[in-house]
């Protein structure tokens, strides 16, 4: 009786061990064999998060497995990127990265504590490019950089940003330094909260994506001041808004969102994911979403993304 029990017990153990999730994917040609998770390291409901969740719904069609979108928040993306170092090559978890993580954060104050580097990741495809905009509390009547400079002569400028070591925070710092104004960056946990702070008059200014500010601009609560690009924009909502390039400043760059995997991943795996997402980006529903979010399709590959990172790093280092 006891012997039978022992045998059954060990049989159960062996069978159940078979169910245990080990990561021994030896056959690369069969990748992916189970669901893929894409981690967005930024705010829930933000532009990257919405893009992630929407594109993930088409994943099964092109990759043959479900693609799950998830978030991992903290320190403007640093927490998720640091935790990602625990992943191995050919992992089923992918992550987003951008110039904020690789060009700005390591090169600003506190950067020595960063535990990851660009080389720990392999870029697969950039999902979009977007332009940041600075908006102001509409009661201040600030519509361009000249108004801003005038305001800044008598007031210490408070700018609400989504994390002090982020891509947008650097843009704010560089602009203020170029204008020779005194400022403080006030960190919030998400662009929506930063915009709300500006709308309430708590800080006078905020930096965000255009679509995030759209609601407040439309309602007349915030006014756009400047775009962080060469030529500005002129759309229905953002009428005749100049770009920092037009004032002769060089510190601007587009915001990107690159889908990445862990270093050492087999090139065929990278190719598979890239091709799948290229197809997804062609879908009309995705194009509509991008129009609504005021972002552009810009499927940079690894080389192009590295160039982008290097150029932003150069901008950051030169302004130090």
């Amino acid at each position: 009786m006891k012997k039978v029990l022992c045998v059954v017990f060990f049989a159960l153990l062996t069978i159940s061990s078979a169910f245990s999730g080990g990561s021994n994917e030896a056959d690369i040609s069969k990748w992916p064999e189970r669901e893929i998770t894409v981690i967005c390291p930024w705010a829930v409901g933000g532009v990257a998060d919405v893009v992630n969740r929407t594109l993930a719904t088409y994943g099964q069609e092109y990759l043959g497995v479900p693609v799950l979108a998830t978030n991992e928040l903290g320190a403007g993306g640093n927490v998720a990127l640091t935790n990602y170092l625990k992943q191995g090559p050919n992992t089923y978890e992918l992550i987003f990265g951008n110039e904020g993580c690789f060009s700005v954060t390591p090169n600003v104050a506190g950067g020595e504590a960063i535990q990851f580097t660009y080389d720990d990741f392999v870029p697969i495809i950039n999902l979009y490019s977007a332009i940041f905009v600075m908006t102001a509390d509409s009661t201040l009547g600030i519509n361009d950089l000249d108004d801003l400079k005038e305001y800044g002569q008598n007031n210490r400028i408070k700018i609400a940003v989504n994390g002090v070591a982020s891509a947008e925070a650097f843009l704010a710092m560089a602009l203020m330094d170029n204008l020779g104004l005194e400022y403080d960056l006030v960190s919030y946990n998400g662009a929506n909260l930063a915009l709300d702070a500006a709308a309430k008059g708590e800080t006078a200014f905020a930096i965000s994506h255009q679509s995030q500010a759209a609601g407040n601009v439309e309602a007349g609560v915030l006014t756009p001041v400047v775009m962080f690009n060469e030529d500005g924009v002129d759309t229905e909502l953002f009428k005749d808004v100049k770009g920092v390039g037009e004032y002769g400043f060089a510190e601007f760059y587009p915001n990107t969102c690159c889908l990445m995997t862990r270093k050492g991943t087999d090139p065929s795996v990278v190719e598979k994911i890239r091709n799948a997402y290229l197809e997804i980006l062609k879908k009309p529903e995705v194009k509509d979403l991008y129009d609504e979010l005021m972002i552009e399709i810009n499927p940079m590959d690894a080389e192009e993304f590295k160039e982008h990172i290097d150029s932003v790093t150069a901008i950051v280092l030169s302004s130090k």
Binding site: A43, V44, G45, D49, V50, R53, T54, T57, N71, N192, S211, A214, G215, N216, E218, A219, V221, E292
Partner: peptide, 18 residues
């Protein structure tokens, strides 16, 4: 509720005064 925000956006319901 933050997760619900994601669900709103996916369905094209952008939060805001409008």
């Amino acid at each position: 509720v933050a997760i619900l925000l994601g669900a709103l956006m996916i369905n094209g319901l952008t939060p805001g005064p409008n």
